[in-house]
Simulated scan of single mutants.
Amino acid sequence: MYTLVTIADVVQILPSDFNKPSKRAIEDWINTNYADKVINKVGLCVGFHSLISASEGLIGNGTGIVNVNVDFKLVVFRPFKGEIIRGTISSANTEGIHMSMGFFEDTVAPRDLLFSPSTPEADERGLVWVWRANENEFWFDRAEKCLMRVEQEVWHDLSPQMKKLDEDFDMESRDIHGMRLAPYRLNVSMGLTGLGPDLWWLGEDAAVAEEAAEAPENLEGTNDTEMAT
């Protein structure tokens, strides 16, 4: 789910940060400019991990800004295809179910990747998907915690160079909720045994116990990749 990415960039340290230790000033700049941002075809940057190298600082003429060439590692969220991840149902419409992971909202389970036959049903709060099997009904209720499998990454370049394209969106350039395309979206499936709401497979008590026992994610065994900006 998480990986370490090596990046090369030019850090600009403002005179107002000269009172900080150099490493701290560099780390603050990296977190400000990368944390919680998507790098196209790389993933969602979570935060600074470690500094690999830094050059001597060069002071810009007339600005006082110190420019430093650095190589550093970032923690990046980018699950691999086929990985099982956990999320919460946040909304639904006739095209599928929108999932939330708390820190990442652009996860969608399209209708053709749900258990079959599943159909949308209207209730007092909106639309809910229902899987009917052997005369039983299984509901994809809002706020239910689910397991889902990553099937596809969808990228959309929202860099400044793509601003004009962003301004010229038509309806075909919107996601299943009619919203502008996210820079990074995951299409997931909930159509295999064990996937979907935890309550279906574990029962309420077991689902609560499993959630409480889950340990925080760690970075052991992550892969390193490199890129330069």
Rank of each mutant, 00 (worst) to 15 (best):
V76N: 00
D106P: 05
I65W: 07
K23V: 12
E95H: 11
I176V: 12
F48L: 08
E172C: 11
T3A: 11
V150I: 06
V208M: 13
Y184V: 04
L199S: 10
E137C: 13
V38Y: 00
T63A: 03
K164I: 14
E214T: 03
A8I: 06
E220Y: 06
V68N: 08
F80K: 08
D9E: 15
L202K: 08
L147Q: 15
L158Q: 09
P183N: 04
A213T: 13
E210Y: 00
V5G: 05
A143I: 14
S53F: 04
V208E: 15
L147C: 13
A207F: 06
H98C: 14
I13M: 01
L44E: 09
S116A: 12
G82A: 00
W200I: 13
L202E: 14
E204G: 02
R86P: 08
N187C: 08
K145Y: 12
A206W: 06
S50L: 04
D168Y: 02
E226L: 07
F103A: 12
E172G: 09
F104D: 10
I30Y: 00
P216E: 10
T225N: 10
V10W: 07
R149T: 12
S53M: 06
V66P: 07
V42Y: 01
C146N: 09
L114D: 12
G178P: 07
E204C: 03
G62F: 02
G96Y: 09
D198A: 09
V128L: 10
L51A: 06
N61I: 14
L195N: 07
V70A: 13
D123T: 05
N19K: 05
M171C: 10
A182E: 12
H98Y: 14
V66N: 11
L44P: 01
L51G: 14
W201T: 05
W139K: 15
G64Q: 03
V68Q: 04
R185H: 03
E137K: 10
N187G: 11
A25Q: 12
N19D: 15
A213F: 04
A212H: 07
E151V: 00
M101Y: 03
T32W: 11
E83Y: 02
N19W: 06
M162I: 08
F103V: 03
D168I: 11
R180K: 13
W129G: 06
E220W: 06
L44Y: 04
V68G: 05
V68S: 07
R86E: 14
F77S: 04
A206K: 15
W131K: 05
Y2C: 01
E217M: 04
I85N: 03
M148D: 12
D106V: 07
G126C: 05
R111V: 14
G194P: 06
T119V: 09
S55A: 12
W131R: 05
N31G: 04
V108D: 10
T225Q: 06
P120A: 13
A206R: 15
E144P: 08
W139T: 12
K41P: 02
T107N: 07
M179H: 11
R174Q: 09
A182G: 01
V128H: 13
V42Q: 01
W155N: 01
P21I: 13
P160R: 01
L51Q: 15
L165K: 03
E220A: 00
R185M: 10
W131V: 06
A8W: 03
G102R: 00
I89D: 14
L4G: 09
